[in-house]
Every structure is written in structure tokens, then in C-alpha cells.
Computed example of a mutant assay.
Amino acid sequence: MTDLLDALQWPAMAVTLVAAWQVGSLSRRRRTWGFWCFVLSNVLWVVWGWHDRAWALIGLQLGLFALNLRGVLKNDQAPAQQQPG
């Protein structure tokens, strides 16, 4: 079990990179998938951090989750861009 938890950092890293790529998309659908990938990466990093006693990493992941959630909420509430003229 310890080997599995040690190896968890690699899929966590891969999911984080996929999430970052997706949230940079112009497509709302891809950005939504990116958000959920970030949530999954946060969970994976917290599990790995708990196992490795990386408390700062756990705190970082909780903070990043909160910032991502804030971004999604603000994005949903943003007014439509106004056309000039």
C-alpha cells in the first residue's frame, strides 16, 4: 500500500497538468472539465500529502481549491461582454 501511495504523486502531477491545459481553453465545456480535473488533482495531492505528512502541500491544495471555486463562481456571474457602439 505504501508503494501505491508513493506513486500517487505521478498521476496527481499528470491530472494537474491536464487541468491547467483545459482551464486555459476558450471553450466553456473544456474549462468546466479543467475545474473538475483540478478538484481531482487536489484530492490526489491531499491523499499523497497526508501519507507523506506534507502539511504545507495539503494547505496549498485546499487554498488552490478555494481559488478555483472562486474563479468558477466569478466566471458564471460575469456579465456578457458588451459590443461597442
Rank of each mutant, 00 (worst) to 15 (best):
R29V: 13
N42A: 13
K74E: 08
P84C: 03
L62I: 08
V39S: 08
N42H: 13
Q81A: 14
L17D: 10
A80H: 05
T16D: 06
A20C: 10
W10C: 01
Q77Y: 05
P79R: 09
L5Q: 04
L8Q: 06
L40S: 05
V43L: 15
L8F: 07
T32G: 15
A66F: 07
L17H: 09
L57E: 11
R29F: 14
V72D: 02
D6G: 01
L26G: 14
Q83V: 14
V43E: 06
W50K: 05
W21G: 07
C37N: 07
V47P: 03
G63D: 00
L69T: 04
T32M: 15
S25A: 13
V39K: 03
L8K: 06
L73V: 07
G71D: 00
S27T: 10
F38A: 15
G24A: 07
G63S: 05
G85N: 13
L4E: 11
I58W: 03
H51A: 02
L4M: 08
R31D: 08
L67T: 03
R28Y: 11
F38C: 12
P84I: 04
W48Q: 10
F38Q: 12
D52F: 08
G71C: 00
N75G: 14
L69H: 02
W33V: 13
W50T: 15
P84L: 09
N68F: 06
G24F: 04
V18Y: 11
L69E: 01
L44W: 01
A14L: 13
R70Q: 10
L40N: 01
Q83S: 12
V18F: 14
A20W: 10
A78P: 05
N68S: 11
R28W: 13
G85A: 14
T16S: 15
V23R: 10
V46K: 01
A80C: 06
L57W: 15
M13K: 04
D76E: 11
C37E: 02
S25P: 09
W36L: 12
Q82T: 07
M13H: 08
A20R: 06
W36F: 15
L5P: 07
R31F: 09
L26V: 11
N42E: 07
W55H: 04
V23G: 03
A19R: 01
V39C: 12
P84F: 02
W55K: 00
A56F: 15
L4T: 09
V46M: 15
L57P: 01
L57A: 15
W45K: 00
W36H: 10
Q9F: 03
A14N: 03
N68A: 10
R70K: 08
Q61M: 14
Q61T: 04
S27W: 13
V47M: 11
L60F: 03
R30D: 12
A54H: 11
